[in-house]
Computed example of a mutant assay.
Amino acid sequence: MAEGNYSTIQEFILSGITEMSGLQLPLFFFFLGIYVVTVLGNLGMVVLILLSSHLRTPMYFFLSHLSFVDLCQSSVITPKMLENFVTDKSVISYAGCMAQFYLFDVFAVSECHMLAAMAYDRYVAICNPLLYNVTMSHKVCSWMVLGVYSVGLACATGETVCLLRLLFCKANDINHYFCDLLPLLELSCSSTFINEILGLSLSSFNIIFPALSILISYFFIIASILGIPSTEGRSKAFSTCSSHILAVALFFGSLAFMYLQPSSASSMDQGKVSSILYTIIVPMLNPLIYSLRNKDVKVALCKFVQRRQFL
């Protein structure tokens, strides 16, 4: 069999989250509800920030891109997963599977670094407020976001090109609800050593480096908050930071569980549950945690609704 961009497998079958027939319909409506909330929340945040002049600050600039990334990532994964609940078997073509993996990888990696950029923005705003407008100028923020997307595109391209070199000869049942790297490597009938090394290296870089950056940023943020004389001010700041840290811990913790441990059949089944957190749950929670609890966003939303009523 000749090597190259060739595969005897023309389509894959996604096994989904569970094979228990009694759970298919309830899970369909459950995840459909989550997806609707995710789309409305993230799309609403993007539109609101674009149309509200007083939300055009670095913090909301990053938030709009986080919402865009969450919306895209969820839309790459969830519709196909929903199909799995209402059909006998969810079939995806070889080309569609590679495209789904590539797009998922782009947005997952971008989210890791976008969260790190947002943490740095909050660090500068709280710890160096006098230099904030200079340090986080529009040009700097634009370059940071461009860098985030560039890292996502570069990592996804590298992993996908290596994945296209693999041969899939017989087995085509993917033990997952979307085309992820580790389940695909399990099906390959050619050597996956390079893919495993590259995947582990990129996963380590894209998970550990942003997570450490966020932890360091919030360490200095919390230290600065402790110096606030007002008890009410400290309480409000800690409430905001704790919700942000919870979202970050949920996202990076589930990613680390999936990609920074040796793969096995048991860990792959557990990985499905872990994957739900960073592909479906976190994209739904982010607009609530980072945006809709914010007073400025609530005010902007009220003004936006009032303007629409007078049109």
Score class of each variant (00 low, 15 high):
residue 134 V to G: 01
residue 94 Y to S: 13
residue 227 G to K: 15
residue 230 S to I: 00
residue 208 I to Q: 08
residue 110 S to G: 05
residue 178 F to V: 04
residue 209 F to S: 14
residue 116 A to D: 10
residue 118 M to H: 05
residue 194 I to T: 11
residue 168 F to H: 05
residue 201 S to R: 11
residue 106 V to K: 00
residue 185 L to G: 06
residue 158 G to D: 01
residue 101 F to S: 02
residue 104 F to M: 08
residue 213 S to G: 15
residue 165 R to G: 09
residue 123 Y to R: 11
residue 183 P to S: 07
residue 154 A to P: 03
residue 129 P to C: 03
residue 202 L to H: 09
residue 206 N to Y: 07
residue 185 L to C: 08
residue 181 L to C: 08
residue 148 V to A: 03
residue 104 F to W: 12
residue 102 Y to C: 01
residue 122 R to Q: 07
residue 212 L to N: 09
residue 131 L to R: 13
residue 200 L to Y: 15
residue 191 S to H: 06
residue 216 I to E: 09
residue 187 L to M: 10
residue 131 L to G: 03
residue 205 F to Y: 15
residue 155 C to Y: 03
residue 181 L to K: 11
residue 93 S to T: 15
residue 95 A to M: 13
residue 122 R to I: 08
residue 206 N to V: 10
residue 212 L to T: 12
residue 165 R to W: 13
residue 210 P to D: 13
residue 152 G to W: 06
residue 124 V to Y: 00
residue 230 S to Q: 02
residue 127 C to H: 05
residue 194 I to Q: 09
residue 180 D to F: 04
residue 210 P to I: 14
residue 105 D to R: 09
residue 122 R to Y: 04
residue 97 C to Q: 06
residue 189 C to D: 11
residue 154 A to C: 12
residue 93 S to W: 11
residue 218 Y to R: 03
residue 174 I to G: 01
residue 226 L to I: 09
residue 217 S to T: 01
residue 151 V to R: 01
residue 172 N to C: 05
residue 190 S to I: 04
residue 102 Y to Q: 04
residue 230 S to A: 01
residue 163 L to Q: 06
residue 144 M to P: 02
residue 157 T to D: 00
residue 154 A to G: 04
residue 95 A to W: 12
residue 172 N to V: 02
residue 129 P to S: 04
residue 116 A to L: 11
residue 131 L to Y: 08
residue 119 A to Y: 08
residue 108 A to Q: 07
residue 222 I to F: 06
residue 216 I to H: 10
residue 108 A to H: 04
residue 159 E to A: 00
residue 102 Y to D: 00
residue 115 L to M: 15
residue 215 L to T: 14
residue 107 F to R: 02
residue 149 Y to S: 01
residue 129 P to A: 05
residue 198 L to R: 00
residue 123 Y to M: 07
residue 190 S to L: 06
residue 216 I to V: 15
residue 146 L to T: 03
residue 165 R to I: 07
residue 144 M to K: 11
residue 106 V to W: 02
residue 231 T to Y: 09
residue 153 L to F: 14
residue 136 M to Y: 05
residue 216 I to M: 11
residue 232 E to Q: 14
residue 158 G to Q: 02
residue 102 Y to N: 00
residue 124 V to Q: 00
residue 137 S to Y: 14
residue 114 M to G: 09
residue 196 E to V: 09
residue 125 A to D: 06
residue 127 C to D: 04
residue 186 E to T: 11
residue 144 M to F: 05
residue 110 S to H: 03
residue 137 S to K: 13
residue 177 Y to M: 12
residue 111 E to D: 07
residue 116 A to G: 06
residue 215 L to P: 11
residue 152 G to R: 06
residue 141 C to D: 09
residue 99 A to Q: 15
residue 155 C to G: 02
